[in-house]
Nucleic acid binder design. Structure first.
Lengths: 155, 155
DNA sequence: CAATCTGGTCCTAAAATAGAACTAGAAGTT
DNA sequence: AACTTCTAGTTCTATTTTAGGACCAGATTG
């Protein structure tokens, strides 16, 4: 038996992204981090995750540059886990998942959380796929293609 | 030991979405479906996934309304797995993962695939978070809040 | 300075995964 | 029609991952 399959070597950014954050818990930890959770115990009780798994996930996400540790903001000797710039880059992934979930997984009256603009309290707009010039696009207007590097490997 | 944790009951659309498509393989199967893959064997060889797991995933995704089966388009007696409307709704999740992967997981010269607009051959624009009136927003301009249903439970 | 809290590690049992072997029906070949 | 190959699975076993609890060291609180 070999190890769990790795997708890193695929030339597809989707596969490589999932190789990093595509497991059962990572995106939930990241979601909580966006919501201001920073401490081991907060993640643990908030998610209901086993401590051993959480410890492994936090370590992996830190090694992979998505989280970093910092001295606890409350002045104690413990540490905070906070998102790096790279980790914050995942915000639109979370938003896209949220919008899909809202659209397809709830009945109209089911209570649920929403993503609000803090300044006005209004919900944020839906994400949209657009061309470079701003024209709206549908998935059927697109296709995936292997591209060559922009610069040559050698002189 | 109880079963694997379910996130369905959380009032968070992100958690509920991940409960449906948050495992190791589902989003890759969906990505391939967006790229035109329809047949069991295509998914299997393309992803390098074990057949048993693929069979389970395809069944689950079908039961959950993300894929549906249809008579094979090549006229054979086999069947195609195609995305439903609900499944196609996941396109922006895939795009968001792709853009994050492109930004953070590749060196400039690493070859990789890209998402192109078919009509012009240009790359699609980056996804952006915006307010309802079109103002660009940053993640730090937002917060998550539990909302009440728009309609009352009973007259 | 004793009790408790925090953030872990370690252990075991159950569940999921990987991979190979096997199979039934469809398709193609002669 | 008979034989072979292809497709789409199912089933089996070994390995890995997960869930949950026991345990533990250092920090904090009373």
């Amino acid at each position: 038996m070999v190890k769990r399959v790795s997708l890193w070597d695929a030339g597809c950014p989707v596969a490589r992204a999932l190789d990093v954050i595509g497991d059962w818990w990572s995106l939930l930890i990241i979601r909580d981090a966006f919501d201001g959770v920073t401490r081991f115990g907060e993640f643990q009780t908030g998610l209901g995750i086993a401590k051993g798994i959480l410890a492994t996930r936090l370590r992996d996400l830190t090694v992979r540059g998505i989280l970093q540790t910092a001295p606890a903001s409350d002045g104690s000797a413990y540490k905070d886990y906070v998102l790096t710039e790279k980790g914050r880059g995942l915000f639109l992934v979370i938003v896209a998942l949220r919008q899909w979930g809202e659209d397809h997984l709830y009945l109209p009256d089911d209570p649920r959380s929403a993503l609000l603009e803090t300044e006005t309290g209004a919900r944020v707009a839906r994400l949209e796929l657009r061309a470079q010039d701003g024209r709206p696009l549908n998935w059927s207007d697109t296709h995936v293609k292997k591209i060559q590097p922009l610069t040559k490997p050698r002189g």
